[in-house]
Design a protein around this nucleic acid. Structure first.
Lengths: 224, 224
DNA sequence: AAGATCAAATTGCGATCACAATGCAAGGCC
DNA sequence: GGCCTTGCATTGTGATCGCAATTTGATCTT
């Protein structure tokens, strides 16, 4: 009943803050897949009334970041099947490289410096083994890039897909250790941006995604 | 306060019925783009309390079928810009042919007969100039096909995209008259399904979409 | 008569309450 | 001792109320 005191950002509506909080938790994988949640429990944790939580959850369910048992009507983080992963991988491999290519066209020094900073933070998180920080930085890297594309609709699609995959990335990276990951592709992407090479950026991001999705695929198949 | 008495379909939750109602209204274009709506007005029309309407609207906003003015916090049907249309067209041209191709693999006589029936209905709607019925039938044709793909994630993406474009299809078809439309491509798609020709189905749906999106593009540019 | 100002209505947001359904666990029955 | 039943806690859903912000319309002023 006390955690909400801090006015996150610029005094958004409460349900937006709650949405952002749950979204962050999902993207960084702090909520385990298959885990059941409830409106009142979330409300309690966040120190708000169940009402704005209900609104936030509605949004997340619509984005398929949360699932609702049609019989129970109880909600949980959806479990990832191999089939679902396959579709998400396919979709991501289409949208995200497209966004990267578009962003490359309007990349400038400011963006590049920003990405380099995020990438450095990412590397340090890797070195320290801080999975939370790594997940956050990785997300930040991709989406500060994608935002530059100026493609609202595609960006929203990418955000939704990432949201659905987030919880599982955490599981996988917790398993494989997240050591030898993706730094090369990020560097390649930055290099392509410097050269305003749209196709290069597309390839780099595609490679980055492919590698990550391959690992997730292996992990998912390994479990089931 | 009386219209909700009838238990639509199989006793879903009220907010689901409201969601379905608004969604149908949007897909068939019965709500004009740019038109402002309010929770209480919708609640009044549907004969329910504002509460389930709020839930339904939340979902629709998350799916970008409704927009919410960040200053006003008032909601309306989003206007379609040329840029937005371009992105939606691109996305649809990726997802929907993919779904068609996948559906072709598991098509059977039942599906084909179903599609033929819907297509016949569509033709009659065209002949009668019944735009509402045409919009409904066209949607039904595509999505009874897509559902057969058994690709939940991609299907949801396609549904979301269609929802965003729906209101404008109505405007465009009201303008051009919807006379010489798409029947060829539907027939081609059905033929491809009979032959279990996945790539043929993909091409047919892609052509169908391209034609429709071209007309919308022309209409949008013509207006602005 | 035209424009500015103020009051009333409308809007979205959040809280609280009530209710039916479900899940859970302790206790009783065979 | 194991299984079933019964009671309680928790769940999502919907209604109603209050609040602050905004829009709207009528009145007043110039």
């Amino acid at each position: 009943m006390a955690a909400v005191r801090r006015p996150l950002a610029d005094s958004q509506a409460v349900h937006d803050q709650v949405y952002a909080a749950i979204r962050r938790a999902l993207i960084t994988g702090r909520i385990a897949p298959g885990k059941g949640v409830s409106l009142r429990s979330l409300a309690g944790e966040l120190g708000v009334s169940p009402m704005p939580v209900r609104d936030a959850v509605r949004r997340l369910v619509a984005e398929r970041a949360l699932a609702i048992n049609p019989a129970n009507k109880r909600l949980s983080v959806p479990s990832l099947t191999a089939d679902r992963l396959e579709q998400l991988a396919l979709a991501r491999l289409w949208v995200e490289p497209e966004l990267a290519a578009r962003a490359a066209a309007s990349a400038d020094v400011g963006l590049i410096r920003q990405l380099q900073a995020v990438d450095a933070d990412l590397d340090e998180a890797l070195r320290l083994g801080d999975v939370d920080r790594y997940m956050t930085a990785n997300h930040a890297f991709h989406f500060t890039l994608y935002e530059r594309a100026g493609a609202e609709v595609l960006l929203a699609m990418a955000g939704g897909l990432w949201l659905q995959i987030g919880p599982f990335m955490r599981v996988v990276f917790g398993r494989v250790g997240a050591n030898d990951l993706a730094a090369d592709h990020h560097a390649q992407a930055i290099a392509a941006l410097k050269a305003k090479d749209a196709e290069g950026a597309r390839r780099a991001i595609a490679a980055d995604l492919s590698e990550g999705m391959d690992k997730m695929r292996a992990a998912v198949e390994g479990v089931s």
